[in-house]
């Protein structure tokens, strides 16, 4: 198992290359999930404000 991570002395290079790819490909969807949540929250907020405004006009 150790030999597998050692990779003939190139382990540090190989695993850091894999690590960079993995890191970016996990961060990208995470930021997308965060951005989607933020957009939905914002649209909900403006929707609530508009509803309140139309209710006020009725009264």
């Amino acid at each position: 198992m150790n030999e597998f991570f050692h990779m003939g002395g190139f382990g540090a290079y190989i695993w850091s290359a894999m690590g960079v790819a993995a890191l970016l490909m996990v961060l990208e969807p995470m930021t997308l999930m965060y951005r989607r949540r933020a957009v939905i929250a914002q649209i909900k907020r403006t929707k609530r404000l508009e509803e309140r405004r139309t209710n006020n006009q009725k009264n």
Binding site: L32, M33, R36, V39, I40, I43
Partner: peptide
Amino acid sequence: ATILMRVRIIILERERKTSWVSKLKEF
């Protein structure tokens, strides 16, 4: 997968004032 996730966000951002967006179950 990521492009479709992003395009859905862009659609929401750009079409936020349309009635179909406000009818989505998300809101």
